[in-house]
Amino acid sequence: MRSAVRPRGGQPRDEAAAAAPSRGPRRSRRERVIRSTQWTAWGFLAPVVAYLGLFYAYPLYRNIDLSIRSYTVTSFVSGNAPFAGFANYRAIFANPTFAPALLNTAVFVFVSIAFQFAIGLGLAVFFHRNFRLSGLLRALFLVPWLLPLLVSASTWSWMLNSDSGVVNAFLQAVGLSPIDWLTSPTWSLGAVLIANIWIGIPFNLVIMYSGLQGIPPDVFEAASIDGASGWQRFWRITFPLLRPVSAITLLLGFVYTLKVFDIIWIMTRGGPATSSTTLAIWSYQLSFGSLLPDFSSAAAVGNVLIVIAVVFALVYVRARHRLEAL
């Protein structure tokens, strides 16, 4: 981009202070800006809104339509399925797979995000120290993302294989007993979690690192002059400044993890039995994982996931409002 352009006005120190959420009230000025820029605001936003309308409205409508009619393969092709209201939803809630799938989804999502975010943030802070080779190593962290999921997930199932996997070979070498990672009901969710955390680390690292780079170095310098220790600096300055970026990273992580299915599908197919079946896996099983697709139930499960995501998004939007009101 146009790296030569230097932002006009505002000394670095001021920028830093303005970026900190604890900055004092500027409301009256801000309100003037709001009035005068309403048209401009929508001008900038319009392309994306049109884009959303063009490309997402139809699939979303389709997913809702599928879920409130009872589609068979016949009516999927001919398009005249009878209206079923919430019958499909009632059916999936009553299904014995629902409870374990919901529980697995909750465990999968929260454990994945906790580890991905903590490790991603830790690595971002680490790489931010800009040591020799840090740029190269950071770039290498992205390599897992270049691999098609088919390949990375297959590699993990290879490594975690009970008999010929390298992980069990390692466990045995250090005197532990091997684990049936993918084939025992106790471990299968853990196995897909490990692979998913691995895949999610680069995402968190990149965003948090960019967030750190957005904090002017002067802030850290000022803090170290004040005699703050590294740990204090992180919790009192770095972390609060990263809050908007952290919030969106967590929210996006949540949304993406909720819909993860390829990794689990390739590694365990949701099994053994339902031990690693999440809602996303179940939805896929119902539609394309079977020879006789049940599109309506699959869409209903998919919509339940959308509702869960919306609830968390509302929490995010509220939190963000509060943050901005400060």
């Binding site: 199932s157 294989n161 009970s162 008999d163 010929s164 049936d180 993918l182 084939t183 590694m267 365990t268 197919r269 099994g271 053994p272």
Partner: peptide, 16 residues
Amino acid sequence: APNSVIGDTQTTAWQE
């Protein structure tokens, strides 16, 4: 039979 047959496709079983 090895425990891995639970997750083996026909190809992976063949590789074994």
